[in-house]
Amino acid sequence: MTSLPDGTRVFPTTRPSVVEAVAGADADARSRAFATLVAVYWRPAYLHLRLKWRLEREDAEDLTQEFFARAMAQGFFEKYDPARARFRTFLRSCLDHLTANTRRDERRLKRGGGAAHLPLDFAGAEQDLALAGPPAADDPDALFHREWVRSLFTLAVESLRAECEASGRSVRYQVFARSDLDPVEGRPRPSYRELAEEFELPVTQVTNHLAWARREFRRVVLERLRELSGSEEEYRIEARELFGVTPP
């Protein structure tokens, strides 16, 4: 592969890393960073507990709450070293460690557990679990990664929708949602011509809207990914894994 010129950034530089902020001294920034981490990771963490550790629903809910509460109170994430692992791997290891300790101590997983309750939609996650079908029990790490990507994309889509509504570009989002987000099982995705008829737009405008929305979606995902990465190297690797292609 051809080397890039010195100084050329392959990916955009955006907001400061959430991973750094969550361990920083600024309480407000730490709180915002923590909220972002919870938004992205709570669902993968919950499903990880349900599928890898085979916890009952209530126990998994309690331990998810306890994990994030302890992480905030006891500064789990301050111990993260980007040179040793990806942040995602580190977070999952912390979760596994906490779960193993909880079992070893033979402490019953008390509902509530004294932890502050975060507004997490566990019922929705259970529905997701049912929709996803039988878990890939042979590879819980892959499941954690898959759920993390899903969370990342879902948050990016939400962000894109809000951005479009705020800037009077709802049609762009609607075309994108109709083309790329609607479930596809059992029927093909609509063609550009069908989308043009449905939205009463020229075909060229449909392709323009889609190109814009897809580019924005990608930008938002990469911004969020950068925030969530422990290092530039981790960010580049994750970005390539998300959107790259495998050379022949």
Partner: peptide, 13 residues
């Protein structure tokens, strides 16, 4: 947060 099926995640990638 709306559930995003695996097929949609793969399509978006």
């Amino acid at each position: 947060m709306t559930w995003m099926p695996d097929a949609t995640v793969a399509h978006l990638r």
